[in-house]
Nucleic acid binder design. Sequence first.
DNA 1: GTCTATATAGGGATAGAC
DNA 2: GTCTATCCCTATATAGAC
Lengths: 218, 218
Amino acid sequence: MPLSEPAPMKTRDRILQTSLQLFNEHGEPRITTNHIADELDISPGNLYYHFRNKDDIIWLLFEQFERRMDAALQVPERRAPDMEDMWLYLHLVFETIWEYRFFYRDLDNLLSRNKKLRTHFRRIIERKVTTAAAICQGLVDAGVMNATAEDIAALARNIAVVATYWLNFQRIRTSAATVNQDSDHLALGVYQVLSQVAPFLRSDARQLLHHISREYLT
Amino acid sequence: MPLSEPAPMKTRDRILQTSLQLFNEHGEPRITTNHIADELDISPGNLYYHFRNKDDIIWLLFEQFERRMDAALQVPERRAPDMEDMWLYLHLVFETIWEYRFFYRDLDNLLSRNKKLRTHFRRIIERKVTTAAAICQGLVDAGVMNATAEDIAALARNIAVVATYWLNFQRIRTSAATVNQDSDHLALGVYQVLSQVAPFLRSDARQLLHHISREYLT
DNA sequence: GTCTATATAGGGATAGAC
DNA sequence: GTCTATCCCTATATAGAC
């Protein structure tokens, strides 16, 4: 294989890539297998040579997403994270959601017609909640945060809700055109999540967070 | 018309009622006009005598929902609400969402195929945000709450996100069977929203909120 | 107002040639 | 691996009789 040209992408991978792009842009329910084939200038028959059915494509995209999200939710273990760690960490989570945002747009539909998807997605949600709780507990142990166990439990659930649905929320509020300026929306989501944590922080940590927000927002 | 028997419901109203019930239970995309007609033991043709199309049914249900939600979002003007007011107020919002929950399950789908729906729903969301901000500002003015304008802005957005998506979130987490114990889920949603406000409250108001939560949860 | 019958359209998926 | 042709099914919606 000549090194001068990059190897052309295999059809199977092109189908996955294009499906993801179309799903994200228009929503999965409105993209048919024919649309995908059209966009790629291949025949529907060819598409079905590579994939059993539409759900098969969706499942493979989900596996990509799951690997990415599992990696993103990896907690840095060595030490209690500082505010900047938290910001970057959350931003990674939001980026992952953004890249596979079509799952979030039609969650109910997708999960109710595919049991395996449902089980796996639920695991991701639970992991969001427990990871958020673990980080908060770490901050408490490090003396940076002041919260009871009950506070942390409720806070972790709310963090997960906002992290999960922020992009949907913004999508409703802003016109479709505006939504496509990615980075702003992600940063604002990170800000929203961290502003839930802020009131529990010790004064100096809260100041630092305030400072970081100003830096990263616009 | 004899008073001894209640007037039988008009077919048109029965269609609306049954549609709402089926949409809520199974999700709007999976309920066809034929399903609705079947459930009512009428013919599809009859259904189309009463409604131009499926979107027409959905729009009329939305109008009901909008009236209910507009009423629920009415702020009690006379005085700064106490914690129990807040609890009951929020519970009313959650009850309204619960009764028309199918809209929330497939929001993206519904809003992107119907512009009028999109405009009106967006108005409701904006109203949620501004109402939440107004109430918080009222609490600050009354000396019950301690928060900057920036705090309130972020808090109001987060309140709206949790109020909007809490039921969806719980639906993913718990098995379908569990979800149908209405009241628990609503109360927990109210709790989640108010726990966002709690850390900004003066100590005595926070205690009161804590107390009320214990009373209403389970 | 209600029914039966049917038109229309589109999406998912397969068969078989190349 | 890829294409063409086609089948099947389901959903929306209408026509016309009663």
